[in-house]
Design a protein around this nucleic acid. Sequence first.
DNA 1: CCAGACGTTGTT
DNA 2: GTCTGG
DNA 3: CCAGACGTTGTT
DNA 4: GTCTGG
Length: 242
Amino acid sequence: MCGRYAASRDPDDLVEEFEVELVPGQLPPPSWNVAPTDEVSAVLVRRPRDGGGPAQRLLRPVRWGLVPSWARDAKGGARLINARAETVAQKPAFRAAFAARRCLLPADGYFEWYATETGGRQPYYISRPDGAPLAMAGLYELWRDPAGGPEAPLVWSATVITTTATDELGHIHDRSPVLLERADWARWLDPGAGADPGLTGLLVPPGPGVLRAWPVDAAVGNVRNNRPELVEPLVHDAATLF
DNA sequence: CCAGACGTTGTT
DNA sequence: GTCTGG
DNA sequence: CCAGACGTTGTT
DNA sequence: GTCTGG
């Protein structure tokens, strides 16, 4: 689950909503069809590069698809777009990031493809009825191309943590992203919380009523399509609306 | 010891 | 069928 | 996640 | 980097 999402909010709105500072440089442009390997905005907490000073909550671009620090090249990361909540603390590809580099990935909503009885696939858009952005639980990693030498630039990348889907969403798909409520953000993002055994307790399915879903134009399947209409309801038959 | 993997998803 | 690119 | 490619040779 | 398989 969660192989495509929408993230169209202005950086200014995200700064306010997530109480972050912007890192210098460009954030990705608004997108209604974020695909693996795209640059996305991430919320994370870092200490300033040169020692002293308090940790800061930042908004910065990362590549979607986590590249482990030991990877020989960045290509394999294209498939590490999700990490299972059930095993994320143990898996070699994720556990270092889970212990020390947790983040939030802001989204307007995300897409799921529902497997129909006739073998077709109908995309659904899933978002909050209250209009608030989703704060998807994620991990980030820093990678330097070993072929580029010690001066090669760092590549920042991230993955979305998934869990089981419940209730109405389970009809569409059996996995969903882990969403964190505002009250849990600071605890999740605190780099020093890595040893907190209660952290995994945050990785639970969205509660009933938190999300709603509706069918959308199949055009979202092609990553070259990108427009606000991709998230709008496709209402040919109200009975197909979950 | 070295070599090689290290992940998720959906579908059967 | 399976891998790569987006 | 889906869409689209999936190959070699020789020549410019 | 670290674990597993041989």
